[in-house]
Write a protein that binds this DNA or RNA. Structure first.
Lengths: 409, 409
DNA sequence: CGAAAATTTGAATCAGCCC
DNA sequence: AGGGCTGATTCAAATTTTC
């Protein structure tokens, strides 16, 4: 279905969308500015009344309610909604959401926290925003996202089994000899509701110039959490279009709406240009052998080398030369066959007049039957690959036969 | 004045306190979770519990409003109030506070975030609580609290003076020679409204066995922020008495109230011998737990594994098991012989009952003469090491002889 | 079929051994 | 005596079972 952007009041446009089609709604509505104005009477002579405030609040609340009801209608039964609220009105947002979606559908109050520069001394530095997460029904789509264990975690312990002692207290299971029994493997820690994501860096801000632009990482996380590929995402106050960009990057369809034609134009332009900002989440998913810095060349630690940034075939040159020419190195990509990797490296290396090249095998062990690996390309096995082979070998041995190791040579 | 504890409904007791005497109110009322909260002391000799069930939200709201009005009366004009709420009722709390104290008196929404133990798989793991900070009047007492700079901060830069250039742009001040002028020392970063404070540890000495007990550190921060020595702190739902303990430790007077006579007895007893646990995590920071093995473990990228931070012999466990026991992995350190590395790994692995262990050789190739490598330790060669050997081999070949490769085998 | 009670559960933290 | 590893303990939980 792709990505669509509409200009206008989202209420009208939402009314034209059909029922139960959307999987995710993200909204970041404009704040209740009326209220702020009425608050700041400069001379402080007039304490504004509760009634005044209620009038402006209830006006804002009904503005939201109308639109949320449409969004509720458009959502699939398994759909979710994320309401990004400003701190001055987060309780209003919560009340309105409880009214339209119901308290039982409340899932999480997500805290987006970030570091910020300021010299304000008379107040705590505001450094978070709140996102309310509700589902439409009891069965909502939810993809588990796992994070790393804390460095303080007792890793041996989480591999241990549990049992109960005499007084029914939960304890770690032990065998007849009193030794701890180890269980299966663990995957990681489930994502918490406090998300520390750096605020948009100033450079990126310069690019769109839109005031409330959100980091793409924030939207990516929301989209991955509650949708699958091909699902439909709706952002009724899309602003500079970050939601749509994130959705497109992740292969989701998306509809964006904004009342300002400037915002719509900006969004359309952003969508047209292939996005250069690399998606950290995507990269982690695709290249699982890269380290935290996204650096596959870390495998070369310990050898003098020069990393190459912008070459499709070569990841680094060794400082050591062969016949006076530097030696290019490539690390096999995830999902790339050894022959393909060798071909890519060979082609790139040839233009640099390299006489020898080195390919680091990460996925497959080279076999005698491997075709198309030129003589100039030496294949070296990464430690990870060696370990994988070793494990297979050990498991085969355990079963009393060995089918894997030898046949690979 | 010292510290006093009263038993009873705080509404009645507050009515007996005189107007404009308190500097700080901290309240942590029942959250409206609609369940019974209970916890027992470590030796299981005693179980504390309280009911947290309400007929309706509005019933809960009016319960709070009545008491907040009394608290408002008791506060000095420069006084502050901190309302500790959780996600199930934070919007109710906010509404009630706006009604009694007024929106203009809103100061901060403080997020207390912590890591927690849970098995949540179908939801985001709740890992924060909210504290609303309001003042009674426009001029409230506020003591600046500074924290450390983030490790990424350019400390040089923050010591530099600023001035304005011809076009009134803020630039770093320079002296006649064009050198940067360093100003006095900077003090630190102002405290933000997101407070990462560890949850009270199950084994902490500070722990009393009372449910919902707060860390003393949290209360200390609140008391420091808004009171001076000798000021009066009030906690109308004092529970196990953490607020009073913190106040006493900081030389503030305090009044605590609780409806349960058990809670009052516990508080009185705790005040006799205040115990505060030093959080090693907070004192030293998370980084102190991290080994310098980040680079090393990146060699394992591509294999499912769990990095181990707390063991000198083991860098990671593979998720794959051998004979039901996880396989530990160590990466040879720079300047460490293969035999030494194998010995360290073997010793650490044995205590974990590991049957097989993997050592990644980074510096030396194992030779027949390598002594002291136990049978259980499998040695695997890193790509970097393989490449070094290959280079030596190629260079030797180039010269017409081959002395290196074979002799190493 | 819902609500409440009973059961299962995972990982973070400090205390206290043990070298 | 001191620092590092190991073990104990827990859940303003989460999930399953019962009524």
């Amino acid at each position: 279905m792709g990505t669509e952007v509409y200009e206008g009041d989202c209420l009208n446009i939402l009314r034209g969308l059909s029922t139960t089609t959307a999987d995710l709604v993200y909204l970041d509505p404009p704040f209740c500015t009326q209220r702020r104005q009425s608050l700041s009477t400069r001379d402080r002579s007039k304490e504004f009344s509760f009634e005044d405030r209620w009038n402006s609040i209830s006006h804002y609340a009904s503005f939201l309610t109308e639109r949320l009801k449409e969004l509720h209608r458009i959502l699939k039964p398994t759909g979710s909604i994320f309401f990004h609220c400003d701190k001055t009105a987060s309780h209003v947002a919560r009340l309105v959401m409880e009214e339209v979606f119901g308290a039982r559908q409340f899932q999480s109050e997500i805290i987006w926290s970030y570091k910020r520069w300021s010299n304000s001394a008379r107040k705590l530095l505001p450094a978070h925003q709140t996102i309310l997460f509700y589902s439409k029904g009891p069965e909502c789509k939810f993809n588990e996202i796992l994070t790393d264990y804390s460095p303080t975690t007792n890793v041996d312990q989480i591999l241990q089994r549990r049992s109960r002692d005499d007084s029914n207290k939960s304890v770690y299971a032990r065998d007849r000899n009193g030794d701890v029994v180890y269980g299966g493997s663990k995957k990681g820690v489930p994502l918490s509701d406090v998300w520390e994501i750096p605020f948009l860096n100033p450079k990126a801000k310069e690019r769109t110039g839109y005031p409330t632009q959100k980091p793409i990482l924030l939207l990516e996380r929301i989209i991955r959490l509650t949708t699958n590929e091909g699902d439909l995402v709706i952002d009724p106050f899309c602003g500079s279009g970050t939601t749509l960009v994130a959705a497109k990057l992740l292969g989701r369809s998306a509809i964006g709406i904004d009342i300002s034609n400037e915002a719509v134009a900006l969004t359309k332009q952003r969508l047209k240009e292939p996005v250069k900002t690399e998606s950290a989440l995507l990269m982690n998913g695709l290249d699982s052998y890269r380290n935290a810095n996204g650096d596959a060349v870390s495998l070369l630690n310990g050898i003098p080398h020069i990393p190459v940034q912008r070459n499709n075939g070569i990841d680094a040159f060794l400082q050591e030369t062969f016949e006076g020419v530097p030696i290019p190195v490539r690390v096999q990509r995830h999902g790339e066959t050894l022959s393909d990797a060798a071909g890519t490296l060979y082609k790139a290396g040839k233009t640099k007049k390299a006489r020898r090249m080195i390919l680091i095998a990460v996925e497959d062990v080279p076999t005698l039957f491997d075709l198309g690996i030129p003589n100039e390309v030496e294949v070296v096995t990464s430690a990870a690959l060696s370990i994988r082979r070793l494990i297979r070998h050990l498991n085969a041995e355990e079963k009393g036969f060995d089918e894997t190791l030898e046949s690979a040579e």
